[in-house]
């Protein structure tokens, strides 16, 4: 697929503690390119909506790589942050402008994760003290939610339809709220819907499927679990004997496959329905800490 235009190409990138980012041919498991991410691990990765650039958030930097060139070095380096950058994301149309607009939202505890509401205006930020901050970027109005005091929020996700918000903490618990409002001038209201013990150890990541029917949680218990959003019952458990902590996860565009990255230096492609490993991506020398995945949806 390498000859295809970037627009209709499956992009799978994995970042590892070995300070490399690898780009894979997703259906074959072949590593196509390796990018250098010197001096730092990668905490989070994202692909721009136009599929041209890969953003990798590390210590003090966000580095942007050109997906379609063959250079192993970044093209843009965002700096000026004094500590780790733990989350990175783009607004849906990913406009890049020369405007220098800055918004800083100060939280008293280290920020572990952030998630933008699909209305592109509210940012949900989870911190280590267990607080979820809901920050309206435009008005800078903010609210706080504390599902479980002193249980660090590890990951927050909002489904693409904006109906649910899920947060997982370091106790393995997953809290789900139903969202309403958030369009026009009506403020977002949250209704606690479900709290479930998703894992017996640290939960690390939560994501919703693109069709909003599923939610996936990953954990230090060496598994990832897929839940139905209809009733938040468990649907599939993604377990492999050699898999270790599962640090990151991503759904395919049609919600039929899931990619996970694990401490056993391997990324895996799973079938959502059967929970089978379909492909393995091995080549990293150390833990895979972040993955970025872009699929193409045919309708």
């Amino acid at each position: 697929m390498s000859s295809d235009e970037s627009g209709d190409q499956v992009i799978l990138a994995t970042a590892s503690y070995d300070h490399n980012i690898k780009l894979w041919q997703a259906h074959s498991g072949i590593c196509q390119r390796t990018l250098q991410h010197n001096e730092s691990q990668v905490n989070a990765m994202e692909i721009t909506p136009d599929r041209q650039l890969l953003a990798a958030a590390g210590y003090q930097h966000i580095r942007m790589y050109d997906i379609n060139s063959s250079a192993p070095n970044p093209v843009i380096n965002y700096e000026g942050v004094s500590k780790n950058v733990t989350a990175v994301g783009f607004q849906e149309d990913g406009k890049s402008r020369n405007l220098h607009v800055s918004r800083i939202f100060q939280v008293s505890a280290p920020v572990n994760c952030a998630c933008l509401h699909p209305n592109q205006a509210e940012l949900f930020v989870g911190d280590q003290s267990g607080v979820i901050h809901i920050w309206d970027v435009k008005t800078e109005h903010n609210e706080q939610l504390i599902p479980e005091p002193d249980a660090s929020i590890q990951s927050i996700a909002i489904d693409p339809e904006g109906t649910y918000m899920a947060a997982v903490n370091n106790k393995g618990k997953c809290y789900v709220w139903r969202l309403s409002g958030g369009t026009g001038d009506t403020p977002i209201t949250l209704t606690p819907t479900k709290s479930l013990l998703a894992h017996n150890k640290y939960a690390l990541k939560v994501k919703f499927s693109p069709d909003s029917t599923m939610m996936v949680t990953t954990s230090a218990d060496h598994t990832a679990k897929i839940w139905k959003t209809a009733d938040f019952s468990q649907m599939t458990e993604l377990r492999d004997s050699s898999q270790r902590w599962v640090w990151d996860v991503a759904f395919s565009a049609d919600s039929q496959h899931v990619v996970t990255g694990s401490s056993d230096n391997t990324a895996r492609l799973w079938s959502v329905e059967t929970g089978e490993v379909k492909r393995e991506y091995s080549g990293h020398q150390k833990t895979i800490s972040a993955i970025a995945f872009r699929d193409v949806l045919y309708s």
């Binding site: 049609d254 492909r279 699929d295 309708s299």
Partner: peptide, 17 residues
Amino acid sequence: PPVSLLTRLVQQYPEGI
């Protein structure tokens, strides 16, 4: 339901390359 490119390719090469 719509199918993604990845799913198509995975089905096309069920055993990988």
